[in-house]
């Protein structure tokens, strides 16, 4: 029974961590806006933590460049399983408008596996909530 409660809790308590991987701030402020009164993702048990060791879901915005790719990898590795990654915004998905810049490697999935892609430039808070909810579905499937 305890095990079941733990499994159920997983989808009820996704602690998110946001990492800005070289975004233009547009998506970042929308991620932050999700936490604020108007959208309040804490309704879903989401807590914004500042530390990968406490996080279940990593929200990544922005393009990857060689320097922040190492950081992104490191943060992802420090997150204990089970974990999920949500890529947010055109830059995070593919590099967006900056795909062809000399210091851009492309989207988040060049470095770490991505579970949910949230398109938009920037993605609306509603879209991010949709993304988080979709990620929860992944945790729900993770029974046992």
């Amino acid at each position: 029974m305890l095990k079941k409660f733990i499994d159920n809790s997983r989808a009820k308590s996704p602690w998110i961590m946001h990492f800005d991987c070289g975004s233009c701030n547009g998506c970042d402020i929308e991620v932050l806006a999700c936490l604020t009164p108007m959208y309040d993702v804490e309704r879903f048990g989401v807590v914004n933590v500042g530390n990968p060791k406490h996080a279940d879901v990593l929200l990544v915005t922005g393009t990857v460049n060689p320097r922040n790719a190492k950081v992104l990898r490191n943060i992802y590795d420090q997150m204990p399983d089970p974990k999920g990654v949500i890529a947010i915004g055109a830059c995070g998905l593919s590099g967006g408008i900056f795909r062809e810049c000399y210091n851009v490697l492309g989207g988040i999935d060049k470095v770490i596996p991505v579970d949910i892609y949230v398109p938009g430039c920037p993605a609306k808070p509603e879209a991010i909530i949709d993304g988080v909810v979709a990620a929860l579905a992944k945790f729900e499937g993770l029974k046992g």
Partner: peptide, 14 residues
């Protein structure tokens, strides 16, 4: 710095 550097000034060429 350099974690956000994209080099977009160069995009003017394309």
């Amino acid at each position: 710095l350099g974690y956000v550097h994209r080099g977009l000034e160069k995009l003017a060429e394309i």
